[in-house]
Amino acid sequence: MNKSTDPEIHIERGELSWRYPQKLSEVPELLSEGYIPHGGGTTLVKTPLVKSKVKRGRGFFDLSRLKELKAFSLSGGTCTIGAGLTYAEVVTNISTFDINHILVKALSRAASNALRNRITIGGSIATFPVWSDLAGPLIALNSRLKLLDSSGKESTCGIEEYFKDRSIGRNKLILYAEVPASASVSYYYREVRTRFDYPLFTVSILPSGTGGMAKAAGGAEATGIAKAAGSVGATAATSGPVGSESTGDSAGSYIVVVTGTRGKYRKLQVASSASNLPKQPDETEKTGLQFPDRQGMSGEYLEHVARVQIRRGLEMLEKAAGQGRSK
C-alpha cells in the first residue's frame, strides 16, 4: 500500500498514486517527489496519464483539502482569488461587489454549469487550454500570480510572464491570482456556435488604466507591449510566445486581448477611437491578429469576426464613456 495521509484510503501497488495533503506545508515535498497537483481535474482526466494508463510521474495530489487555495479576499482595490476556487465560486464571490466585473462576464458563460462547478482557477491557468475563458480577462487585467515551489519558497510573477515562459510554472503550485477589483467597464465576447461550446476565440477589452494594480507591481513593464512599426490601427501589440517592449503612455486607450489566435493570444493597445482598428485583411498582419483554420471555419473568417467584435466592443465602451462624461 502506498503512503497516504488518510487511513481510510487504500492504494494498491502499481496503481496511480494519490496523495491528500491537509496543509500547504505538505505540498513542497509532494512537488519534489514529482506528484502532479489535481484541482478540479477536468483537463487531467483527459491526459494520457489517466486515459492510456501511461505511468508518468508519481501520481496526483488532491488540492481540495487545502483551505488556503479556497480563500477569496478583497483589499485595497485588489481581489485575491485562491487557485482552488472554481469558476462558479469566483463568479459568486465577485458578484457580491461587482456584478459587471469582466471575470463575472467571462466565467459565468464558460463551459457549462456542471463544468463551472469543477474547473478551478489554478488548473485553468496552469494548463491554459485554447478554449480558456479565463486567460483573456486575466491578461487584460495584468493579473499577478503567487507560486509555491518544491523548496517551499514563494514567488510572484505576471500572468503574461507565466504564459510565455512555461518553465516558470514547472514543478510549482499556483496559490492565488490577484486582479483589480474594479473592472466593470469592460467588454467580453466568446465565439461559439452553441451556448455551451468551448470558444474558438475570446475578446476581452478594458480601459488601459484598469490593470493599474499589476502595473504598479511591475506587471505591464515586465511583460511589455510592443510598438507595431508604422501601425495602422492598434498602437501596440504583444502575443503569446514573443517577447516585446513597452510603449509607456497608455492614456485614453484600451487593452484588447484576443485568445485563440496563432500563438494562443494577442494583446493590443488600441487608441480610444474604434476607427483606428485595421479595416483591411492585409493591415491585420501588423497587429498579428491571425487565426489558425478550424473545422468548418477558416482563419480568415475568424479574423474577420474578431475584428468586428473588437470594433463593436470599443464602440460600446466609447459610448458608455461618452454617456458617463455627459452626466
Partner: peptide, 19 residues
C-alpha cells in the same frame, strides 16, 4: 450532485471526491 452541486461524473476522477 456532488455535495449538492451538479458535476459531470465523467469529468471527475473518483479518487478526488472520496468521502
Amino acid at each position: 450532485l456532488l455535495d449538492g452541486i451538479p458535476v459531470n461524473s465523467c469529468m471527475v476522477l473518483a479518487a478526488s471526491v472520496i468521502g
